[in-house]
Design a protein around this nucleic acid. Structure first.
Length: 234
DNA sequence: TCTACGATCCTG
DNA sequence: AGGATCGTAGAC
């Protein structure tokens, strides 16, 4: 039986959106939320709800894993190549989706951070499926466990039906939305190196809800430690 | 449970 | 040429 819609949360950090819910919980993040250091945005997006509406239906889930890509000074960030057609929206205003194709066959979705021209973002790497689970299961070829539906950036885009058509679309309205969810405590957040990159491979910029079975696997050789406010984002 | 590898194609 | 990945095969 599908998980019920996630409960509204007292997300004090997510303020300023125009349409607040009955409990005072914003229906989306304000632009200022994304106009900050991507490390801070990556950590705070844990617990948020990503949802994609398509003609087939609506599918979404709770964010349990993110990575920060800091900008042109980050060797692993696509911004190192400058503002090209591919990375156009990565360099655009914050609060917009940057969707790119990887390895010729999968899509990955990011939330753009910092002001226009910087080229930084947060990669959404895994979801705990919440909405439209039958649709997600069909798109993913009916895996045994729901924990295999969206436990990786490519899987997540397949499960939700996210493609390059959504590159450059805002995240506070439209078919692809990201909104506040129940906050995740600092003690539940683990920090590790980023997955699948060769440059800056030792930078601690991956944020995971440590106890979640819905996150992607952390390689055995990776260091992992609790998130430390003021150290990991300042 | 873990590691190794091929698929597949746009970008610079 | 190589990549912000995934599924499968094979070892243990």
């Amino acid at each position: 039986v599908p998980h019920p819609h996630p409960p509204a949360a007292p997300a004090s950090r997510a303020t300023g959106s125009p349409e607040a819910g009955a409990a005072g919980v914003p229906a989306s993040y304000a632009a200022a939320f994304y106009d900050r250091d991507p490390r801070l945005v990556a950590r705070e997006l844990l617990g948020a709800v990503l949802e994609c509406r398509t003609p087939e239906g609506t599918a979404g889930g709770r964010v349990v894993e993110t990575e920060a890509y800091l900008g042109p000074h980050d060797p692993a960030c696509h911004a190192v190549a400058g503002r090209t057609r591919r990375t156009w929206h990565l360099h655009g205003p914050p609060g917009v989706a940057y969707v790119y194709r990887i390895y010729g066959m999968y899509w990955c979705v990011n939330a753009v951070t910092l002001p226009e021209g910087v080229g930084s973002a947060v990669l959404v790497r895994a979801l705990e499926p919440l909405a439209g689970i039958p649709l997600q299961r069909a798109r993913r070829g009916h895996p045994r466990r729901d924990a295999d539906l969206a436990s990786g950036p490519g899987k997540l885009c397949v499960a939700l039906g996210i493609t390059g058509a959504l590159d450059g679309t805002p995240l506070d309205a439209g078919p692809l939305t990201l909104r506040p969810g129940p906050p995740v405590a600092d003690a539940d957040v683990m920090v590790t190196p980023r997955i699948g990159i060769t440059r800056a491979a030792d930078w601690p910029l991956r944020y995971v809800v440590g106890a979640s079975p819905h996150a992607s696997r952390t390689p055995r050789a990776f260091f992992r430690r609790p998130y430390i406010p003021g150290v990991d984002d300042l």
